[in-house]
Design a protein around this nucleic acid. Sequence first.
DNA 1: CCATCATTTCGTACAGCGTACGAAGACGAT
DNA 2: ATCGTCTTCGTACGCTGTACGAAATGATGG
Lengths: 205, 205
Amino acid sequence: MSRTESRLSRQKIAAAALAIADKEGFEAASMRRVAQELKVGTMSLYYYVKTKDDLIAAMDDALMGEALLPSLPRDWRRAMMEIAKRTHAVFIRHPWALVAMLSAPPGLNAMRHIEQCFEALAETSMTTQQKMTLLATVDDFVFGHALRAAAADATIDAEFAAAQLATGAFPRLAAAFGGGRVEANKDRFERGLRALLDAGVNEAS
Amino acid sequence: MSRTESRLSRQKIAAAALAIADKEGFEAASMRRVAQELKVGTMSLYYYVKTKDDLIAAMDDALMGEALLPSLPRDWRRAMMEIAKRTHAVFIRHPWALVAMLSAPPGLNAMRHIEQCFEALAETSMTTQQKMTLLATVDDFVFGHALRAAAADATIDAEFAAAQLATGAFPRLAAAFGGGRVEANKDRFERGLRALLDAGVNEAS
DNA sequence: CCATCATTTCGTACAGCGTACGAAGACGAT
DNA sequence: ATCGTCTTCGTACGCTGTACGAAATGATGG
């Protein structure tokens, strides 16, 4: 058995932490817990990872790796659409990673993600700046939707909301929910995406 | 002096915590620190606040209060635009609140925010579901842009990125940044917003 | 004025966190 | 066998949220 196989590495640590975060929640992925999972002393991790935030950055980047498309559709709209949908799916599954973005600088896979977006837009007539703007805008929307979907999923307090509606302080809201439980359209994500892509191409012309 | 003035309250605790988070960062706003600021025993806070997450929810809701518009422009586009811009500005200033969304159910002011959006859309011909979808989509984009702007602001590692670009692994990215430091358009937020609003009205017709 | 009771305050203690520090083990080269 | 570097990790410190129960405070009825 090669020695490198049994050795630790930044990636292996990140993978172990990711597995724990998935199974037991992000907060369970403490340095001690990760070390235990790898059958290693806690402080050993610090040889490969500068700090906990650094580990989180590695986890985040592993996720961005999952968001990469193995191959790109020819049509640039389809391509951008699929990148966005895949990225979205990844972060819907790992909402804590959205939080982590705030303390983790972009890593290798984040750069690959941007590279892939540029590749998708390669054959359009957009200027570099237009491409940049479009991909940034799309990612804004992707992460935003994922964030709010995760938040809504985790934390609606129906009891409190119903009580407030009953006070009459929110007439329009009450009307909206009174007449048969109206919710936002399920495919608003795809619709919004399409709108942003359309606007991007209009810029270009 | 009235006794109620010197008494604690959920709001006053949230306000104190908010002040600390602004001055010294979100992580500095610990229960002990907040209590000290209010000249009160740490555990006294727990009479008004069930848990730390509950306090965070209160802070978040106070912020949503700041995002409310005192008065609404007549034109529904302008109105939605201004609500979005104001909300955006608030969360750009308090990026930690985006994180907090994941563990805090929507409070009173969040409901007021939605009510205000419905009010902005009251005179359009949209159905309730269309209104709901539009305001949800807009908020997705608003929070997403704020999140990514805050992340980019806090954590770009220019040195690492430059080193990676130099390896030649990112030809298109290198080309984009090689020819004169191209960045995404500064007003992509407003442009994106407009695109989403336009799409919303197209749905309606 | 005192007794009684609910409301409000908070001191102590505990388990868990990230990590600074430095000792110890493992290993290749001379 | 010895040195030097790479890798491991045990201990300890200061911080966190908060469970628990005792104390202080304020209002109420006799």
